[in-house]
Simulated assay, not measured.
Amino acid sequence: MTEGNFVDYIKVYASSGKGGKGSVHLHREKYITKGGPDGGDGGRGGHVIVRGDKTMWTLFHLKFKRHFKAEHGGHGSSSRSTGADGADIVIPVPLGTVFRDADTDEILFEVTEHDEDIILLEGGKGGRGNWHFKSSTNQAPRYAQPGIDGVEGWFRMELKILADVGLVGFPNAGKSTLLSVITAAKPKIADYAFTTLKPNLGIVEYRNHQSFVMADIPGIIEGASEGKGLGHYFLRHIERNSTLLFLIAADSDDIKKEYEILLNELRKHNPELLDKQRLLAISKCDMLDDELKEEIKQELPDGVDTLFISSVAQTGLMELKDTLWKMLN
């Protein structure tokens, strides 16, 4: 998935259909000059429906179509004929999409199931025809209900990636390189910070044709939860990962401190993130000899399992997959 077509935040306008008018009609036919009221009801306006689709990974399909209007209901007619219901409009979205009211910022719902239908805006009810209003004292009512108006509004969609493993680390820690080596994903890789500007997803092939999904989240820096660097814009993607793989480069000045900074940014964004399973991988280990590895082991943070890997030399990667698979299962 390239940076250009990964869209994880979008604002859309939606309006449901208005209900059809009830009919004011009096029954007339040959030999029946004063039949009773028989005006039919109006049809309901179309709903605006959101549908979960597990085959989608991005909101890119909504980038150029941001207005959704459902049809109005048909008007009632004679012989108590009900007007046709307005056609619903369906907005397909990837799983993990959160809907907010654009004015109040209130979270309305999130889509987590495939083929799950959630009514975003209900269509207006159709008006009742005049036959509903006849009585012993008013046998020929010449009025009916108008249809109820539809509802409209602006909504924000935010996609939180659904992946099994989320890669967490500072810019240039080797996250994209790791993803490109153990999956078929082709993220942009270069020797400067913030090469990755959008999350990348890759499917990790495991033994016996099994697999799991890994997400490369753009690098976090100190102060990210307050909006520094690329800010908390990407931290929400980590909320959906069941396991967090922390990646710190072997040439880091202080691995323990770097790990603590990353943990602290997650804590400040959402304390629940610290409840997730964590694994620490020291990347770029092809530049280390055994003596340096032993020195680094003395300075590793407590309370988290650690592996040494090299994406370039492809060492320690099978052990990494085995460990992640055990954590996921």
Rank of each mutant, 00 (worst) to 15 (best):
E260C: 02
Q145R: 11
A102M: 05
V93M: 04
N172Q: 14
D8H: 11
K257W: 09
L159T: 00
T82K: 13
E158I: 11
K54S: 14
H269M: 07
A250H: 07
M157G: 08
D191P: 15
R28I: 10
K69G: 01
L108R: 03
A140S: 12
H25G: 02
I203C: 07
M157A: 08
N208A: 12
S180V: 10
G74Q: 02
R28W: 15
G126R: 06
H67E: 12
D8L: 07
K268M: 13
D41G: 06
G20P: 11
P146E: 10
D216I: 08
K257D: 11
M157K: 00
E110M: 09
P218F: 02
D105M: 12
T112K: 13
G35S: 10
I161F: 07
F64P: 01
Y206P: 10
N130E: 03
G46I: 10
G42W: 06
H237G: 06
L274T: 04
Q314G: 01
F133D: 00
D322Y: 10
A249Q: 10
G219K: 01
F109S: 07
D216A: 03
L179N: 02
M327A: 06
G74Y: 06
I89C: 03
G126N: 04
D149Y: 04
C285I: 02
Y9V: 01
E260V: 03
G86K: 09
M214Y: 02
D149Q: 14
S180Q: 12
A84V: 11
L162R: 13
S136N: 14
Q139L: 14
G36P: 07
S77L: 08
E71D: 14
T97K: 02
G36R: 12
D322R: 05
T112R: 12
L159W: 03
E265I: 04
S242K: 14
K268P: 01
V181C: 06
P146W: 05
L244N: 05
G43E: 03
